[in-house]
């Protein structure tokens, strides 16, 4: 498919403005490339469009009309109020749980990973390489491999089926520490730290005033990674939680979906719930994707 690039402006410029200078001859290529991009966009957006349409339909229309076309009756507000009020507003609770697990978890995880990465980058101490090596191994361990034994461990500690059982594992981001260490090595100037020391600032204080500030771009990346990771996590809460009141949104919606075979009205609850849960993330993705680039490839395997 790369052949379709033929004839486009010779320099694959980073600046999109370059195309304004492209002569008319390149117009065909531009249309072809854009056409491919549009087809790909249709693929990625079609299911989202479907759920927007489906959540405006009544259960009868859902099955009677084509999924990509709106029905005559507009049922969106009724469906959404059903979603929000069903079972005493359990959906809102699931949503807030997700915000707690992902938001608070990612925030603390970023701080903890920054402190660790900064320490490993800016101090020479015995055991530093060993500690880093072990943590690096943690990046490669599949998350699901630890979930089962973690459940057994937490059961013995009486932590299973509590908020802590999902929140505590969400506070650890080996990948985040890895990124922060690389970034701190490259950007935190030792002279700046020495100057702060001569001013009589304590080591921990220096980290908070100098280190965190310089690390900010990396922190945004780590935070976003962890936020999406925890928000999307399914296996860990599934293993840990049995009380539906503690469920994050993923588990809750799956709980609704599993009832559609017996009770068809759960189709409406599920589609409405999916729509409501996608909206904030869609906004977040669109707004934050430009922050996503920094540090992504710094950790790449060379």
């Amino acid at each position: 498919m790369t052949a379709q690039l033929t004839g486009s402006s010779p320099k694959p410029a980073v600046k999109p403005t370059a195309k304004s200078k492209a002569p008319g001859r390149k117009k065909g290529t531009s249309i072809l490339v854009t056409g491919i991009l549009v087809v790909a966009a249709l693929y990625f957006l079609a299911p989202v469009y479907w759920v927007v349409v489906a959540s405006t339909k009544s259960t009868a229309d859902l099955f009677a009309t084509n999924g990509f076309a709106f029905a005559e009756t507009f049922n969106l507000w009724h469906n959404l109020s059903q979603v929000l009020s069903y079972d005493g507003g359990i959906f809102v609770r699931w949503f807030l749980n997700s915000v707690l697990y992902a938001g608070v978890g990612a925030l603390l995880a970023t701080y903890i990973a920054a402190a660790g990465g900064y320490a490993l980058a800016k101090y020479k101490f015995r055991g530093a390489n060993l500690v880093f090596g072990i943590i690096l191994g943690g990046v490669l361990v599949p998350g699901t491999a630890t979930a089962l034994p973690l459940f057994l461990l937490f059961s013995q500690m009486g932590l299973a089926n509590t908020y802590w059982s999902v929140l505590l594992p969400s506070l650890v981001s080996p990948f985040g520490l890895f990124l922060c260490r690389i970034y701190a090595q490259a950007t935190v100037d030792p002279a700046l730290l020495e100057a702060a020391r001569l001013d009589g600032a304590g080591e921990i204080r220096i980290f908070h005033t100098v280190g965190l500030r310089v690390l900010t771009p990396a922190l945004v990346t780590v935070f976003l990674f962890q936020l999406v990771g925890v928000w999307n996590n399914y296996f860990l809460p599934l293993v840990m939680l049995s009380d539906t009141k503690l469920y994050p949104i993923t588990l809750g919606l799956n709980n609704w979906l599993s009832q559609v075979n017996r009770l068809p009205e759960f189709y409406q609850l599920t589609t409405g719930g999916v729509l409501l849960s996608i909206i904030p993330l869609a906004i977040a993705m669109v707004v934050l994707q430009r922050f996503w680039r920094g540090g992504l490839t710094e950790g790449s395997v060379k």
């Binding site: 966009a41 299911p47 919606l253 999916v274």
Partner: peptide, 20 residues
């Protein structure tokens, strides 16, 4: 547009596609 699905949890993506 291409990046948006990454923000949709696997469970919810599967629910969406299961309807498809």
């Amino acid at each position: 547009a291409y990046f948006l699905p990454y923000g949709v949890p696997g469970v919810i993506a599967t629910i969406l596609w299961s309807f498809m």
